[in-house]
C-alpha cells in the first residue's frame, strides 16, 4: 500500500508501546524462567548449572507424560466441543429471536463464574453417592451406568473435560458473535426464513465467511488447553493420584510444593514447545482448507 513508505516512523510509534511493555513484563520474565530450566534450583539456595539434565529427567518422567496426555484430552474436548457448540449458539443467538439478549448473557455466564463455585457445583453433579448424574441414572434403572466420575481413573478426565467445555463455550460464543457482525444481514436472515434446511445451507455459506475466526478460536483453544490450570487445580488438584494432572498443574506443584524450581521451569518450556508445535500444525492444516 502506498501509505506505508511515508509512515514508517508512525508504524513503529504505533507498535512500540505494546512491544516495550510486552517485552519487559512478559517476555523477559519468561526468558529468565526458561533459563532456570538449565539449573538445579530449589528456589532458596544458590542455583547450579546442570545443562539439559532437567530435560533428560523430564523425558523419563511418567507423570509428565501422563499429564501431557491429559492435556491432549482437554485440547480435543475443547476444540471439538467448545467450538461447534459455541458456533451453533452464536448462529441461533445472533438472530432476532425473542429473549436473545437473555440467552446471550446466560450463555456467557460460565466464563465469569468463580472456579470455586464451578468446582463445588460440578462436584455435586459428579458425586458418586449423592450426585445428580448417578441419582438420575439410578432413578431410571440404569444403575450399571453409574460411576465414580471424578474418582475413577477411567472417567475422571472425561468428567473434567466436560466441565471445561461447559465453562468456556461462552468465550467462543462472544468471539463468534463478534465475527458474525461482518456477515451480511441478508445471509443470516435466510436461515430464519427457511427453517432447518435453510439453517444447514446458511451454515455452509457462513462458515467459510468466518473461517478466519474459527482458526483464531482453534488456536486460542490449543494455547488455552495446554496451559489450563485454574479449574482442574480447584476441582481435583490433578488427583486422585495424578489421574487428572495436566502439565501446568504438575509444573506448579513441582515448583512450589516440591521445591524443584529448575525442573518446574523445564516443564514450562515443554508447555511452550508443545503449544508452538501444535499451533503451527493446526494453522497449516486449517489455512490449507481456507485456500
Amino acid at each position: 500500500m502506498h501509505l506505508l513508505n511515508r509512515n514508517k516512523w508512525l508504524i513503529w510509534l504505533g507498535i512500540s508501546p505494546s512491544l516495550i511493555v510486552y517485552t519487559l513484563f512478559c517476555m523477559i520474565p519468561i526468558g529468565i524462567s526458561f533459563y532456570y530450566s538449565f539449573q538445579n534450583w530449589d528456589g532458596f539456595s544458590d542455583p547450579s548449572f546442570i545443562g539439559l539434565d532437567n530435560f533428560a529427567a523430564l523425558m523419563k518422567d511418567q507423570v509428565f507424560w501422563s499429564s501431557l496426555k491429559n492435556n491432549m484430552f482437554v485440547l480435543l474436548a475443547s476444540v471439538l466441543g467448545q467450538i461447534p457448540i459455541a458456533l451453533l449458539f452464536a448462529l441461533l443467538l445472533n438472530s432476532k429471536l425473542r429473549g436473545a439478549k437473555f440467552f446471550r448473557t446466560v450463555g456467557f455466564l460460565p466464563v465469569a463464574i468463580s472456579t470455586v463455585i464451578i468446582s463445588l457445583t460440578w462436584n455435586m453433579i459428579y458425586n458418586t453417592q449423592y450426585g445428580l448424574i448417578n441419582t438420575l441414572l439410578k432413578a431410571v434403572g440404569l444403575d450399571h451406568l453409574a460411576h465414580n466420575w471424578l474418582g475413577d481413573p477411567k472417567w475422571a478426565m472425561l468428567a473434567v473435560c466436560l466441565t471445561i467445555i461447559w465453562q468456556y463455550v461462552g468465550l467462543y460464543l462472544v468471539i463468534f458473535l463478534a465475527a458474525l457482525q461482518n456477515v451480511p444481514a441478508e445471509t443470516l436472515e435466510a436461515a430464519e426464513i427457511d427453517g432447518a434446511t435453510g439453517f444447514v445451507k446458511t451454515v455452509k455459506i457462513i462458515i467459510p465467511m468466518i473461517w478466519g475466526t474459527i482458526l483464531v478460536s482453534v488456536i486460542l483453544c490449543i494455547s488455552g488447553s495446554l496451559k489450563t490450570f485454574d479449574l482442574i487445580y480447584v476441582m481435583t488438584n490433578g488427583g486422585p493420584a495424578h489421574t487428572t494432572d495436566v502439565m501446568a498443574i504438575y509444573m506448579f506443584n513441582k515448583t512450589f510444593s516440591s521445591f524443584q524450581y529448575g525442573y518446574g521451569s523445564a516443564i514450562s518450556v515443554a508447555i511452550f514447545v508443545v503449544s508452538l508445535l501444535l499451533i503451527s500444525v493446526a494453522s497449516r492444516l486449517l489455512k490449507a482448507k481456507e485456500d
Binding site: N123, Y126, N127, Q129, N148, L150, G151, G239, P240, A241
Partner: peptide
C-alpha cells in the same frame, strides 16, 4: 470409607 473419598 465412603466411595467418594478421593473427590471430597
Amino acid at each position: 470409607f465412603n466411595e467418594d473419598l478421593n473427590t471430597i
